[in-house]
């Protein structure tokens, strides 16, 4: 099975009814249309990949290196460029268009995106720590609690979970199933949630594990 991939924007979530009445929660992804803007070659670049562009841009919105690269490749400049690693670039040509129909209903896919930023979050939000009492004179409501022992080892172990900057990182949700394709509107509906807020960029590709129906 060849790997399929596409750039998309998350639109939000809803539910759909299957024919038998089952309710399926889905994320609506506005997929493509993407243009192949470049190919990466083993001998020249050291790896094999296909570069896709999403959202055509005016010249002034694109930095010169990207603009010149687009001119040389003979494609329009794009706001967003991403590469997908492939085993072989056969079958892909610069300028080729990929749409939502790349995928089929029932395909198992991995979806990567940037998760919603939570800012500097405490241990409860960031690590799922338990909360303390809010009553009975307790001031230990959202405190992390003890972070170690005493004179032995007289230090805090590495990796101790503490408040941190949480979210706004790349997250891949694996093995989602393509529930529906709306070719007319260029939509892909995948079962389950996808990282990021509505309008955020996501990458859809054939699942790394499995990928079989």
């Amino acid at each position: 099975m060849t790997k399929k991939f596409l750039l998309a924007r998350k639109r939000g979530m809803t539910q759909v009814f299957r024919e038998d009445g089952t309710v399926v929660p889905v994320t609506v992804l506005q997929a493509g249309p993407c243009t192949v803007t470049g190919l990466r070659d083993k001998s020249r670049d050291g790896y094999r990949a296909v570069q896709l562009g999403l959202t055509p841009a005016r010249d002034k919105h694109v930095a010169k290196p990207q603009r010149v690269a687009a001119e040389k490749a003979g494609v329009k400049p794009f706001r967003i460029l991403r590469e997908f690693r492939v085993d072989a670039t056969d079958g892909y040509e610069v300028g080729q268009e990929l749409t939502a129909e790349t995928f089929e209903v029932g395909d198992i896919v991995d979806v990567s995106g940037r998760s919603k930023g939570r800012g500097f979050a405490g241990t409860i939000k960031a690590h799922g720590f338990a909360r303390g009492n809010e009553t009975h004179g307790s001031h230990n409501v959202r405190q992390p609690g003890s972070i170690g022992q005493c004179a032995t080892p007289s230090r805090v172990f590495k990796g101790q979970r503490m408040p941190k900057h949480y979210g706004n990182e790349r997250i891949t949700v694996k093995n989602l199933v393509v529930e529906r394709i709306d070719a007319e509107r260029g939509l892909i509906l995948v079962r389950g949630g996808v990282p990021g807020h509505p309008t955020s960029l996501v990458q859809i590709q054939t699942a790394k594990t499995g990928g079989e129906k």
């Binding site: 639109r11 939000g12 809803t14 009814f17 609506v28």
Partner: peptide, 13 residues
Amino acid sequence: MDNIILELEKTQI
């Protein structure tokens, strides 16, 4: 809410 999602839902109502 997102217009496309409303449209999608309308087809099922």
